[in-house]
Design a protein around this nucleic acid. Structure first.
Length: 415
DNA sequence: TCTGGGGTCCTAGGACCC
DNA sequence: TCTGGGGTCCTAGGACCC
């Protein structure tokens, strides 16, 4: 097909209840039952695994699985099976709350190794069929159908079906696909016929298929923006589209206002990109109980050091060094604060990160109990490029930067 | 019984330089 | 002595997403 007659066709593919579906493949005896995935760090999980270690996974009796009932911890739901969702439980809900709504649900821990394996598998299948694919997390991708053979047929439906079938045949997993002129509309469309559905949207469908939807359905409009829109009496995308751009800019700012206007009119020119460089790498953890900086100093210090080591490991494994070291903490009232410090030179060293993060911690009030501590490294640079750069940099400058870092680190004492 | 972990992007003010 | 902008970097917080 000549390029001139090709219409831009962008697909958004979303795996159906991904984590839960992967678990159901391993434990087919749980099919049709309410199952909730999430939590982690529970002694029951270990006890369960230990007790079932000598049995094939699909032979473990249903009665042996741990139930949500009696859960006491700070975990949240990652995914729930459709059977569990009927009880009103869903992603991001606290497990304690879910236990009240559906105590009979089976609670499984997240098995990241297995999830990652399936994620790589379904993405490889897509990549073989349509190479211009953009990762959007573990269970979602955008795919540019425009120039792919079959990508234009029935507005993309033929290719979407082929991809769905290929993924199902290889993994046993289902997904939902939306195909539209751009990412914004494709993302909305993939939700239309969940699970295992396909939805095709054209420019001319804007009034009938998009405008009746709630503003919240636009990827990028969250609870806050929605609340503000509601306060102006704007509930649907159609109502948003009736506002003129100057009014939106006046009330939402230059950038957001202009974006809202475009989104409401189904406009989005963002390209599908194969890969992008990370901006920051971080680790954080919520404690099993709130900790006090003074009374639980030893415990907190050990966790802090471990987080720094994990970040350093992640940096090394992914091949990056960073210049900005930051911490995040969350108090028992859920308020968060961050502090960061930019070094004169890049680093990936656990001890340097630990010392700079320790200095950041000293700049924060610590009288209140903490529920979370995190460590982040930003202003990243590829480790190889950094090494190359350092080779060409005069030795005197390198030493000067190193001395500056060391002198900052020397002040380290509290943690 | 509150609310995980890993990210990105935007805003806004201040420092500093030209 | 006063008064400008513009550009960039740094820091803190917050919205949002998966």
């Amino acid at each position: 097909m000549p390029a001139a007659t090709m219409r831009r066709r962008i697909a958004h593919l979303d795996m159906d209840a991904f984590y839960a579906s992967v678990e159901l493949l391993r434990y087919p005896q749980l099919k049709g039952l309410p199952v909730v995935i999430g939590g982690g760090r529970r002694s029951e999980d270990e006890a369960f695994k230990g007790a079932q270690a000598d049995r094939p996974l699909n032979k473990i009796p249903v009665a042996a699985f741990p139930l949500l009932q009696g859960y006491t911890g700070r975990g949240v739901i990652t995914t729930a099976t459709y059977a569990a969702r009927q009880f009103g439980v869903g992603s991001a809900m606290g497990l304690m709350k879910a236990a009240k709504l559906c105590p009979q649900a089976i609670l499984l821990p997240v098995d990241f190794t297995e999830i990652r394996r399936y994620s790589n598998a379904f993405k490889a299948i897509i990549g073989d069929i349509a190479p211009l694919m953009e990762n959007r997390g573990i269970d979602e991708v955008f795919i540019d159908f425009t120039a792919v053979p079959g990508g234009q047929r029935e507005g993309g439906r033929v290719l979407a079906r082929l991809i769905q079938k290929s993924i199902f045949d290889a993994t046993g997993l289902t997904c939902s696909v939306g195909v539209a002129p751009n990412k914004l509309l494709a993302k909305m469309a993939s939700e239309f016929n969940k699970p295992n559905g396909i939805a095709i949207v054209f420019e001319e469908d804007l009034h009938s298929k998009i405008w009746p939807l709630a503003c919240r359905k636009i990827n990028g409009i969250g609870p806050k923006a929605d609340e503000k829109l509601q306060s102006f009496g704007i509930h649907t995308i159609g109502e948003l589209a009736q506002k003129d751009i100057d009014w939106l800019i006046d009330h939402f700012g230059q950038k957001t206002g202009a974006w809202l206007f475009e989104a409401a009119h189904g406009q989005d020119e963002r390209p599908v990109v194969l890969s992008s460089e990370p901006v920051s790498i971080s680790r954080e953890t919520t404690f099993e109980r709130d900790l006090h900086a003074v009374r639980d100093k030893a415990e907190l210090g050990a966790i802090f050091t471990q987080l720094c080591e994990q970040v350093a490991d992640d940096l090394a494994r992914k091949g990056y060094v960073g210049k900005t070291v930051g911490i995040k903490l969350r108090y028992d009232d859920f308020k968060s604060v961050t502090r960061d410090h930019t070094l004169p030179n890049h680093t990936g060293d656990a001890q340097t990160i630990r010392k700079i993060a320790g200095l950041c911690l000293k700049r924060v009030p610590l009288s209140q109990r903490l529920r979370l501590l995190g460590v982040r490294v930003g202003s990243l640079m590829k480790a190889e490029e950094h090494a190359e750069f350092m080779k060409n940099e005069p030795v005197a400058l390198i030493n000067k930067a190193q001395e500056a870092t060391d002198s900052i680190a020397l002040e380290w004492q509290l943690f």
